[in-house]
Simulated assay, not measured.
Amino acid sequence: MFRNREIQLLILAMAGVSTLAVVLAFFLPSAAPAIVLILAVLLITITLLFTSWRYQKIRTLSGYLKRISGGDYTLDVRDNAEGELSILKNDIYKVTAMLSEQSSGLQQEKTMLTEAISDISHQLKTPVTSMVIMADLLSEPELAEDKRKEFTNNISVQLERIEWLVSSLLKLSKIDAGSIQFKQQPVLLKELVHKSLEPLLIPMEIKQQSLTVNGEDDAGYLGDMNWTSEALINMLKNCVEHTPEGGSITINIAENALFSEIIIQDTGRGIPKEDLPYIFQRFYKGKHAGEESVGIGLALAEKIIKSQQGSVDVRSEAGSGTTFHIKFYKQIV
């Protein structure tokens, strides 16, 4: 308490007045009663002034708190002087700064949520509108049988697209919310790669693309086989779709003391330089994206890998192919 500057000033003022009164009473003993009375009045006045000053400071702090509760986070109530009120001011400033950051974060999340809902609505609007039109055409009795089959097939394709979109969004939401517990089990990289390639072998065969997998058989990492396979499928699918007929896809596997890595390289048309910084953003569609692309596969892949202490980088040049470099770190330094 005695380290507070205001308390020190109060004690000095009261001690000075009391000392003066004692000296006067010593030299003027006949006036001692009057001196004591004056001393009492002065001490009471000093105490009242000090108390009033402190109440004024407290009222000011109370006003700050009311403004903060009203959403005004632009206050700067820092005070470098010593004392418990100054300490309280500094604490209020820290809380204000924290609340301001939280408010800004919530506003950004609200904006991102609004944009995400808008993007999702846009992605669903096109296939739903298409299905509504085709459903109306199917209801016509005079519709040719070949057209009926074509429309039915198109509706089936659009439903699969919507199902994939909703499923991917749910997975992303679960990862964002931290509700998914990724397993920490030994995973062999070659086994992971072959598992991820299975659903893409037929499309690769149709396009007559060659596939090469190089690397050590015992290279591995600690992680979740199924989730990581989903991430790899999305990246490999991107390579297959953007590599022309007769092209090649090469996968290199390696492990060292710091990390395990998978390098996927294709001979496709590459990604334009201006698109590279954004390919992992949700709903981003580059210049070379297909009409059926919704721009969510690579975003999901990056989320899954980063959630397992990993990283993914992409290098590409137009006309020279694309390289995905995935690393799973053994520990965070």
Results as ranks from 00 to 15, higher is better:
residue 300 L to M: 12
residue 104 S to Y: 08
residue 294 V to E: 01
residue 37 L to N: 15
residue 79 D to P: 04
residue 322 T to H: 04
residue 92 I to N: 02
residue 231 A to R: 02
residue 179 S to K: 11
residue 277 P to E: 07
residue 156 S to Q: 12
residue 276 L to H: 01
residue 45 T to G: 14
residue 296 I to G: 01
residue 233 I to H: 03
residue 116 A to E: 12
residue 306 K to F: 02
residue 240 V to L: 04
residue 318 A to N: 07
residue 6 E to Y: 11
residue 182 F to G: 03
residue 304 I to H: 05
residue 174 K to W: 05
residue 130 S to R: 08
residue 37 L to Y: 12
residue 97 A to T: 11
residue 142 E to D: 15
residue 58 I to Q: 11
residue 32 A to N: 10
residue 234 N to F: 04
residue 168 S to Q: 11
residue 22 V to S: 07
residue 88 L to E: 08
residue 203 P to R: 06
residue 143 L to W: 10
residue 27 F to Y: 14
residue 50 F to T: 11
residue 155 I to F: 07
residue 12 L to F: 13
residue 247 G to S: 05
residue 24 L to D: 03
residue 164 W to V: 05
residue 265 Q to Y: 01
residue 81 A to W: 08
residue 93 Y to G: 00
residue 215 G to L: 04
residue 245 E to N: 12
residue 233 I to T: 09
residue 254 A to T: 09
residue 269 R to E: 14
residue 319 G to N: 04
residue 113 L to D: 09
residue 314 V to Y: 02
residue 208 Q to G: 07
residue 197 L to P: 01
residue 175 I to M: 08
residue 129 T to S: 15
residue 71 G to E: 05
residue 235 M to W: 00
residue 189 L to G: 03
residue 202 I to Q: 12
residue 300 L to W: 01
residue 144 A to V: 10
residue 82 E to S: 14
residue 83 G to Q: 03
residue 48 L to A: 15
